[in-house]
């Protein structure tokens, strides 16, 4: 997540997701944006806060990372790094965009807000390592 081009790839991947949802005939723009936001946040939550360990053997750390989520392993657990800030901001920006394109409709707002909180709360430094 620190290496070159990962942020660009992240933005492009979310854009592709949105375009695929937008191309579904029976979805209107508001539904496409809310679905983009929901799919992104659920994927974000699963990969960063639910899956523990690494998808490859890390035999050099005696299995220490096996108990940590991906988010807790970023930058060896150091808080407030640029990568963390980026991953914290992405759902917020997506939420703002989704609210704008759903014309602040209450139902969409509740769905978007709740999924955004779902991914922001585990990212708080106070919850690092909390189970």
């Amino acid at each position: 997540l620190n290496s070159r081009g990962i942020w660009l790839s992240y933005v492009i991947a979310v854009t592709i997701l949105h375009l695929v949802l937008l191309s579904i005939p029976f979805l209107n723009v508001a539904q496409a944006w809310t679905l983009t936001n929901v799919v992104h946040n659920i994927g974000n939550y699963i990969f960063l806060h639910m899956l523990k360990g690494t998808p490859w053997e890390t035999n050099w750390d005696q299995g220490k990372s096996r108990l940590l989520t991906h988010w807790e392993q970023i930058d060896f657990g150091e808080q407030f790094t640029t990568t963390r800030k980026f991953l914290f901001l992405a759902p917020v920006i997506l939420f703002i965009l989704a609210s704008f394109y759903t014309k602040y409709d209450p139902l969409h707002f509740i769905i978007n807000l709740s999924t955004m909180l779902l991914v922001l709360i585990p990212k708080l430094p106070q919850l690092h390592g909390v189970r």
């Binding site: 290496s3 070159r4 081009g5 990962i6 660009l8 790839s9 492009i12 991947a13």
Partner: peptide, 16 residues
């Protein structure tokens, strides 16, 4: 020498 951005993006796309 750093990789061209397009190549890096396509690498991530491939991993995805």
């Amino acid at each position: 020498e750093p990789a061209p951005r397009v190549v890096v993006f396509l690498t991530y796309l491939g991993y995805g």
